[in-house]
Design a protein around this nucleic acid. Sequence first.
DNA 1: CGAATTTCTTTACGGGTGTAAATTTTCGGT
DNA 2: ACCGAAAATTTACACCCGTAAAGAAATTCG
Lengths: 341, 341
Amino acid sequence: MALQKIKNMEEFAEVSGISRPTVSKYFHDPDSVRKSTRAKIEAALETYDYRPNIFAINQNRKLTKTIGVLVPYLSDPFFAEMVRLIERRCIDAGFWPIVFSAHGQQSLENNALSTLETLRPAGALIAPLGRSSDFEVVQQFSERVPTVVFDSNMSVGEAFVGSNNGQSIPLIVDYLCRTGEPPCFFEMEPVNPNANKRRDAYVGAMERLGFDPHVIQAQGGGWAFEQIGLTEGKRLIAERSLPSDTVLCSNDRLAVGLIAAAYEKGLRVGHGPGCALRIAGHDDHPWSQFTAPPLTTVSQDYKSITDRSVEILFDLIEGGQRPSDRPEVLFDGKLVLRESA
Amino acid sequence: MALQKIKNMEEFAEVSGISRPTVSKYFHDPDSVRKSTRAKIEAALETYDYRPNIFAINQNRKLTKTIGVLVPYLSDPFFAEMVRLIERRCIDAGFWPIVFSAHGQQSLENNALSTLETLRPAGALIAPLGRSSDFEVVQQFSERVPTVVFDSNMSVGEAFVGSNNGQSIPLIVDYLCRTGEPPCFFEMEPVNPNANKRRDAYVGAMERLGFDPHVIQAQGGGWAFEQIGLTEGKRLIAERSLPSDTVLCSNDRLAVGLIAAAYEKGLRVGHGPGCALRIAGHDDHPWSQFTAPPLTTVSQDYKSITDRSVEILFDLIEGGQRPSDRPEVLFDGKLVLRESA
DNA sequence: CGAATTTCTTTACGGGTGTAAATTTTCGGT
DNA sequence: ACCGAAAATTTACACCCGTAAAGAAATTCG
């Protein structure tokens, strides 16, 4: 195939019979050159397989084709799935997504932002850690890089895209109240604004329906949500201190742990006869349909959230200017009824 | 903090009172300059926060500090966890890991390798798709970039690090035979060499113990293992075509699906009285301890596999030469006894 | 204290590409 | 065939850092 090794654009320009600046223009945008020129270049490409050196490219461009993506915890399938969707969209648009995970730690989040900035990305899509974020660092980053925040709403960046907890939580509270005992709310120490919003939405929804809200906060921090749900769940069940036989968990991963706890303690989970505990979650995690029993939950609109985030970012990048207001786009959740509640 | 914006190393050298080449040397290796010089530079770093431009750095170095990491499916928590451990080790060693996922598709794997190569990485750690990999492409990549293969053993790269399926499978087969009815083996269409090795190890182990092996192959490909386990599990249970009340699954994700299927069909899973089905897995996936009942499985030694892979790669990079043989390092699994079998 | 050694400074070039300006070629339409 | 517009070419400089060579300064050691 490769008759000759092509070292750089100079050499490639020579074998393709086109001048280097024009070749450069072609790689920047194939449609920006004449059809006949494009054909020549692409013919040469077939024969000589050459790709511009990424480092040299990005050294001069004020606007690279890099998009930074930062999530708090990539091992969480929710974020893994979000990242998967984001990556796909970026690649299709000719951008080069580069993914960082904070692994739940502030220091790593700071590190990632710092590294990311040296890459001079065209823009960034970040889901901050939230409460454990170093606000100053995130804010300064977002001032220097066009940034869209998703999932966890810190007041930084040019826009926020996420779930409408004010809609989704009442949706499931309403369902649970209609079909059985009003739920208590099982949460962890809140790691991000979503957690607080969900709790507040729960309290509000219960009050509107004329019920007493009961919030149970599990001890223990970190991102091992299932473990917390399991440990605290076992304790609560053993102590018989659950104020209701219906538990709405702040998120699905917590619910997964609670279901495991219920199993261990011999409590049958579900809404049928003979069931002792109804458990519901929030997010529709990828594995929520495989719990035993399958988890009733509210879905987050993964596709819309990622699509819209990317879209807004691309508008920012292409528009070149930052909007004066900071739009917050919230997508509604949908009730996902399964066996657990 | 930043009294003045530092654009490049030139400016930073000026404010730190050290010449640019020495500063460059410092960033390459802080120990290569005199203590007093290092102190001056680090004092300036505290005040002016500057980081060398990654693109410019890598443009000239024959050996970049980039390590490419490629996994077949990042949304799989097994790989997410592996990546987490690898990233950590690379960063600690002063390297810059950059993660790619093939998302289960050959085209994306090829793409990732191609992009990766333009980054001129010092080395790569890859877990290939396996059967759906484009062998030619992977091989050619590994000839140009020092590559360590992990998890899925394709005959490419300088070394392989993975699990000793020949030890782990007999371990659990032995346990299952000792404590109840000998297991049948539940697998999917094999996506990589591990799947085949595990099946063969199962057959061998059963024969050594004097039992008839029974392999059940689920229909359906792709990486939605749980879904396959659920769908096929329901079918098998409904048709009463499981040849044994003990099922050893080729991996935990399949087992998760099968547990869900058993639940839906009203079969109690576990090894106690009143249980109709024993289910075991392989890998000790991060969420296997949270199934209901918790999954009995064989652990893969995540930490050792990633540590050793990284170690071998660093030796390769530092040694500069490639070993004549191609070492294959296999780590033993450990039995993880829980409730499901 | 002086010599040998280490380390730093100065100077200069190179890497592969972006990009601007001036000029020439090509193309489409009359 | 001609003319204006569009596109390509030539030339030149920029980006930021690695790195080499030669000389100057600082450190170490006898």
